[in-house]
Amino acid sequence: MNTTLLESVTTRANHLIDPGLAIWGWQITVYLFLGGMVAGILSLSALLELRHGKPSSPIFRTAPFVALGILSLGMGALFLDLEYPFHVWRFYTRFQLASPMSWGSWILVAVYPAAFVFGLGSLDDSGRSFVRSWVPKNLEGLYDRVEKHAIERRREILTGVFFIGLGLGVYTGLLLGTMAARLQWNSALLGPLFLVSGLSTGAAFLLLTGLHEEERKRIVRWDVNAIGTELVLILLMLIGFGYGTESARFAASNFLGGPYTPVFWSLVVVLGLVVPLLMEAVEAKRHLPFTLVTPALVLVGGLALRAILLAAGQDSAFRLIP
């Protein structure tokens, strides 16, 4: 009997589940993108200061606050995605060890105070007295103590922020990467990939703001490494899928001939990684003037990476394996 030809019919037609999963849309894309970018901004600026002392470009004085603003936008998008937003506080009644979502929500609460203290230390005196002017009278004592620590324990804070940033970056990838049910996300490399991509988009954001020459060069150098790593990770991920189980091969096929192939290769790989990498390399070698094109492309690529992986993952269920 010929068992290859198959007609399969299901009566299930649940909204957001059928015909294909469509639970997460632009909100989560934006959230993951901004989250990753914030991770990059925080980690990179902390690292820069740790390695080379206080950076001189003006952006670094406010970067932690800018990052918080961006993160809040991302969290706003996440909030919009919740089907039961009034229960959002439920995230904070538990810590679920096995749930990246739970890790994420707690990391997010850690990011706010950390970035705030980081920011206080980055500001100059006038900036700090501006902040203090907003503090309510009865909290001024507390504020003063925080401010004192922010300045005096700078190194510890920088180290803390660096790691919290990394945590945030890894988390954005792990959120998807732990979902074995979505064949496309079922890869241990998704965490590192999202982290590196986050660092790269964070770098791109900083580059867009106009940095002093010396700092720009450092960041570009890191960015070149990040992009290179990202390309290697993507390659490894595809190889991993290709040589894996039937379900993994199905996942690889999405990007190797499947429906997501054109967008993935053109937007993420070529436009978002290869072109900026080449441009940065060429600019550095030939001492060409820096343009905003490269960071802009990196940002587009980073956004596309998340949007495409999010969609492809939802489009790669066990039920689709013939």
Binding site: I17, I23, H87, V88, G313, F318
Partner: peptide, 27 residues
Amino acid sequence: HGKCTGCKACIAGCPYDARYVHPKGYV
């Protein structure tokens, strides 16, 4: 139901697509 935020992580996590979002918001 009372503890659910509707974040849908569980839906993404279920290999069998056995869950759905109830119109009231919970899964």
